[in-house]
Simulated assay, not measured.
Amino acid sequence: MSHPHRTSVIFDLDGTLVDSEPNYYRAGRQLLAQYGVTDFGWEEHTRFIGISTRETLAALRERYGITAPLDEMLAGKNRLYLELAAAATEVFPEMRRFVERLHAEGTPMIVASGSSRAAIEAVLAGTGLDALITDVVSAEEVPHGKPAPDVFLEAARRIGAEPADCVVLEDAPAGAAAAHAAGMRCVAVPYVRGTANDPAFATAGLLFPGGQSEFTAQAAYEWLGQYGCRCQIVSGQGISRSREGSTPP
């Protein structure tokens, strides 16, 4: 059953709720080294932020001419990542505050991520977020990962919400594009420095150009209550101005 006129919130996981990208980078380097690739750097890793693990590995497999089966690489990457994630994964403090506030008010929430379901559940359990967000969906459970809208549409279906009643929190251009394609509003918190001007973020209803250093639970909460009719940009002084001509879907 859908929730008419009630906002539901869909969270991306990696780079949005938690700072897991360093662990994914290390796991990727370790995996590729097993296949003789030793020059995989952070800059190249950032090009795949927001893309599902399977699609990322498929692209890297082709680029480096790796002959191992994709499923073998995927299993290896997940195993390495889970080992690193179990040791330490940091929740962005303001994101935790935001989740706690929404949970206290009974706002429907779900995590929709390009990571495997095992990785999502491990991170949520390890950080204690599983007590606040109990529903998850992995891009591996839908036909196409971001920037296709599949994972967000499935997330809405699972929590019984209409896409137009959903707000997505995302850190990557591919995720913002997926939210727009799904007909959902988006709060964009860019993870990679310098990507705030990516055209995909122009469709966001609320943009924090400085990423997590500018994101606050209060600003996001206030916007959630009013939406605003144009894309709003947050600076260090708070929500400062509207971008003319850019409206939420």
Results as ranks from 00 to 15, higher is better:
F40A: 06
G41C: 10
W42T: 12
E43N: 06
E44S: 06
H45L: 10
T46W: 01
T46V: 09
F48W: 09
I49C: 04
I49M: 14
I51V: 15
I51P: 00
S52C: 09
S52M: 02
T53N: 13
T56Y: 01
T56M: 15
L57Q: 05
A58Q: 09
A59L: 07
A59G: 04
R61T: 09
E62K: 06
E62C: 00
G65V: 02
G65S: 03
G65P: 01
I66V: 08
I66W: 02
A68H: 13
A68C: 14
P69V: 12
L70T: 13
L70N: 12
M73E: 14
G76W: 05
K77Q: 15
N78R: 10
N78Q: 14
R79I: 04
L82D: 14
L82I: 11
L82N: 15
E83R: 12
A85K: 01
A85C: 10
A87D: 14
A87N: 09
E90Q: 08
V91Y: 02
F92H: 12
F92V: 12
M95T: 09
M95G: 05
M95N: 09
R96I: 08
R97N: 08
F98I: 11
V99F: 11
E100H: 04
R101Y: 07
L102E: 07
L102I: 07
H103P: 05
A104Q: 11
A104V: 03
E105N: 05
E105C: 02
G106Q: 12
G106A: 11
G106Y: 09
G106V: 09
G106D: 13
T107Y: 05
P108W: 07
P108T: 11
P108Q: 12
M109H: 07
M109C: 09
A112I: 03
A112M: 06
A112S: 05
S113Q: 02
S113Y: 01
G114W: 01
G114T: 06
S116C: 05
R117F: 03
A118M: 01
A119C: 13
I120R: 02
I120C: 06
I120A: 05
I120T: 04
A122D: 11
A122T: 14
V123H: 00
V123N: 04
L124M: 15
L124E: 08
A125E: 15
G126D: 09
T127N: 07
G128D: 05
I133N: 07
S138R: 05
A139E: 08
A139S: 15
